[in-house]
Structure formats: structure tokens, C-alpha cells
Design a binder for these strands. Structure first.
Lengths: 218, 218
DNA sequence: TTGACAGAGTACCGAACGGTACGGTACACG
DNA sequence: CGTGTACCGTACCGTTCGGTACTCTGTCAA
């Protein structure tokens, strides 16, 4: 059975090399020109393939958009550290800061921004299929990674909390704030302009998080 | 030559009653059907006006979208309390909680969500005009309100911080977190499902904020 | 060699949309 | 009463886009 004969199944993340190069071209179009630039003719031209192949592989235009999200999510699959329980507090702090930097880097990346804009622009009163896909494939990954990280911090005696999810929400809010929305709206966020500002913001966020959920009192 | 036929309007509303009713109809279309539903013919049909009038009043389709944002922002103009310096800590806490509830209520409102989706969907690599407008007309208002609120808290001796903007960012992150993005993606956020969950979340956020920026140590 | 097949390239179709033009109507004003 | 004006309703135009069909070329296996 050829791989091409199972097209529009969202759970199927196995794309052929040709299909991946097509999705790559489509992502570049999206990043550079927004949703308006994602036309079937445009993708076919940019990827040197025929429109007929696009429809055979992805079903319809929505299938292409969904495949773009699935493909990009499978590409960014972060190195999910296993939650090793014991480390020094300093090592854990560095781990936490690395997570924060990674989070901001991903959220501010042009491809992530473009896909989030795409899914949000499509959403309406009823739940958006692209939005669901983005949450399932993209957001849950970083959330899971953060949850095991927090748990390892608790086991190592660095952190103290009752509700892991609540602690994660707080951490996320302290790190990201409204930066994500502002970026998606096209604003130039000064916190991310240079390395120094970004590092200062991250230290501030982590410090506040420690004040709230650190084991030692202040 | 100004076409505005309302000489003695309040300086704020630059739109005539007829134009406002048209914008109201356009907003309803947007809320119910997303950006795709904002067609010139659709607006004209829903508002019982002619397409020619639309183009005379707003220039082109983008002008209609911009007018929708401007009009909605002028409508939601919150009662900006003047920063009265002295209150009891309890009164200030209630004020802060009221601000948080208002903030979440506005952000989760269908019209605000639809307009944010619209502006984000239009944004691209270069800054979006709608995004700038939304930030300028919508976001800055609540930010200013929060800043004077925080300052009054500092003057009343309840809060303690060096950088007002930094404190506001923290407060915003604690209250909103990633709820706004999840709502825009179409997710049903359980924190906003019922009054109890919302109130609990708000108390948690305010409490954390006090732990970070309250005057008395814990 | 030949047949099957995947896929590129192109032409085409119908629908929808942005924008314009025009006729008809109500109303204000002199 | 005549004239101008604002505006509605509708018809119309050019363009674009999603989706389909058809032709042609390269590849591979029997």
C-alpha cells in the first residue's frame, strides 16, 4: 500500500519527502504573506507541483492548512526530558530558565506566529478545527514538558505546591504575559528586542515564580 | 470637505447614528461568522443600506474594518476612575478584584474576541494596521486604567514597587495567563465556565500579586 | 518494448467578492 | 413647483480563488 493512499487523516503525521517539501513551501508562503498568500495555485507554483497532487494528498485547502500545523508541530517536537527527580537547586533553576527561554523563542518564532495567526483568524464562535489542532499538537507538548519539570522540582525539594497545573499556569503567565498576543497583533515587543532585555525579563519572571512557589520563605 | 452631517456631536463619536447602526450590524456579522462573513454585500444587506453608501462613508473594506474597531473601542470606554490616592486596603483590594473581573469579562466577550481574531488574522510580518489600531484604542485604555489603579495602591501604602509598568505586566500575566490566546483559538476555558471558578481564579491571582507586590511581608 | 502510473503543467469552470454605476425615492430648501 | 441631495436597491464588471479535467513526460516493472 502506498503512503499516498491515506491522505487526510489528522492523526497520521507521516508525510513523504515530497509532501514535506510542499508543506515547507506552504509554510514559507504563510510566514511571508499571511493567510491570504496560501492559495492552491501559489503553493503549487512555489513547490513546483501540480494542484491536482495537492488535492490528492491533502483533500482540500483546509486539509493543507491542517497538514501544515501537524507537520510543523512534528518538526518542533522538543526534546522532552524525562522527569529525573533529583538535581541540585542550581541545576533546576537553570533548567527552568532554559525552559522559559525556549518557550519565548518558540512563541516569538515567525512560523509559530504565522500558524497561530492562521488558526485564530479561522476561529469563530464554534470551536475552530485548526485551533483544536494547534492546541493538541503544539500547546500540550510544552505543557507536558513543563509539568514534568515542575514535578521534578517538587521532588527535588526546590518547589512547593499543591496543584501542578495551577503552578504551571502561574509560571506561564509570569513568563509570557500578554507578549504572545502583542506579537500576534504585529507589535514590536521591546522585551524580545535584545538578549539582555530578554534575559532580564526571564530572571524577573523566574524570581517571582520562586517567591510564590519556592520552598524557602522570603 | 467633511461629510460628517452631525455638527453638534460629542467630540468622541465621529460617526453618525446611521453609520453607527451600520457598524453595529457589521460587528454582529463578524461575531457570528468570523472575518469571512464581513462582505460588503453582506453588511449592506444586514444594515439595509447600499454598498455605495458603505464606500462613501468608509472608503473601502479596510476602512470598514478599521471603523469597526474604532467604534467598538469608543463604546467600551471604561469608566476611568481618577486615581484617588487614599483608600482603605480593603477598598483597594476590592477595586483591584473588580478590575480583574472587568478585564476577563472584556477579553472573553464575543465582540472583543472577534475583533482580536480579525486583527490577528490580518497581521503579517510587517505590522498590521488593524493590530496597531486595536492596541492603540483598546489595550492602552485598560493599561492606563490599571496603571492609575496601581499608583493609587502605592500611594495608599498597600503596594510596593519600583516600576509601575513591570508590576502591571505581572498583574496582567497572573490574571490572564494564556487564557486570552486559548479563547481566541476557540477553546472552552473552564476557568470562565461558572462564576465560582472565575472568582476562585481571580482570588488566586490577586493573592499571588499581593505576595509579590504587597507591602506587608509574609 | 510496452504498459501502467505518478505527477507536472495548463486550461477551464463556477462562485464569490470588491468596487462602480445607474435608476428610483424621499426629503429639504428656495 | 423645481432643484439638489442623500441614499437604497440592484445590476454589473473584473478579478481571484477553489476545485476539476485533460495532456504530456518521466519512471519502473514485466
Amino acid at each position: 500500500m502506498n503512503i499516498n493512499t491515506r491522505p487526510h487523516n489528522p492523526a497520521d503525521s507521516a508525510y513523504s519527502d515530497r509532501q514535506m517539501s510542499v508543506l515547507e513551501a506552504a509554510l514559507e508562503l504563510l510566514v511571508n504573506g499571511g493567510e491570504k498568500a496560501i492559495t492552491t495555485a501559489g503553493i503549487a507554483r512555489a513547490a513546483n507541483c501540480s494542484k491536482e497532487s495537492l488535492y490528492k494528498w491533502f483533500g482540500d485547502r483546509d486539509g493543507i492548512l491542517a497538514a501544515m500545523i501537524t507537520y510543523q508541530a512534528s518538526k518542533v517536537r522538543v526534546s522532552a526530558r524525562l522527569g529525573g527527580p533529583a538535581q541540585s537547586p542550581q541545576a533546576f533553576c537553570a533548567e527552568l530558565e532554559k525552559f522559559g527561554i525556549d518557550l519565548l523563542t518558540v512563541l516569538a518564532g515567525p512560523t509559530s506566529l504565522a500558524l497561530n495567526r492562521l488558526a485564530i483568524g479561522q476561529a469563530s464562535l464554534d470551536g475552530s478545527a485548526l485551533g483544536k489542532l494547534l492546541i493538541e499538537r503544539g500547546r500540550k507538548a510544552v505543557r507536558e514538558r513543563a509539568l514534568v519539570l515542575l514535578q521534578s522540582g517538587q521532588l527535588a525539594g526546590v518547589l512547593r505546591f499543591d496543584d501542578r497545573a495551577e503552578a504551571f499556569d502561574t509560571l506561564y503567565g509570569l513568563i509570557v504575559g500578554d507578549m504572545h498576543v502583542r506579537l500576534m497583533l504585529g507589535e514590536k515587543v521591546p522585551t524580545l528586542a535584545n538578549e539582555a532585555a530578554q534575559s532580564a525579563h526571564m530572571r524577573q519572571a523566574i524570581n517571582n515564580f520562586y517567591l510564590l512557589y519556592g520552598r524557602e520563605q522570603i
